[in-house]
Design a protein around this nucleic acid. Sequence first.
DNA 1: AACTCGGGGCA
DNA 2: TGCCCAGAGTT
Length: 214
Amino acid sequence: MTKKERYEAFVKYFSESYPQPETELQYSNPFELLVAVVLSAQCTDARINKVTPALFRDFPTPEYMASSHFDELFPYIRSVSYPNNKTKHLLALSKKLVEEFNSEIPTTIKELTSLQGVGRKTANVIVSVLYNQPAMAVDTHVFRVSKRLGLVTQTAKTPLEVERQLVKHIPEEYISRAHHWLILHGRYVCLARKPQCEKCEIIHFCKYFEKNKL
DNA sequence: AACTCGGGGCA
DNA sequence: TGCCCAGAGTT
């Protein structure tokens, strides 16, 4: 099976079997989304959702956050991963938003990644959710599942390589759905150490399944 | 390319 | 108590 055929089967799967997820935007403004996504690095959504209500209540805008101090902000996010780093990032990030971006959230990957705590993956999530751009945010799930399926070359070493191959071959209108699906599939089915192939709906075009004949 | 930053969940 | 999870920044 060629890579081209895998992509055709992949897109066919989305068009027939995977509806557009109802992604209710759970944040009332772009700043909240940015902060939540920065906090999400190496951390589950459930843990983020525990801290965001109080955080956004007391630091609703870049100005409020930029004018606070480490000891004020830290307690709000002490239960997320890497709270020291993220507190520093959020303080520097909010200051930069106020001073260089007129307290608005930038629209380009280049500008977003210039913000502290925002890497390539986070920036892609932002432009995808906030600006409806067909961006593919490559986390460990997307990275692993894409390679297993055979949607990207087995020699791909960096998330950026995987991202470029995926966006090159998946039609724009399916990028968002594909991203959503790859993450859930990686989390619940295509597990890192023990793939649950018996639960998988798309073994008919999976390179990993084909090779290992599970 | 390898290392560091740290919590929570769960066996 | 110890293993597992999961990106950005720095060297």
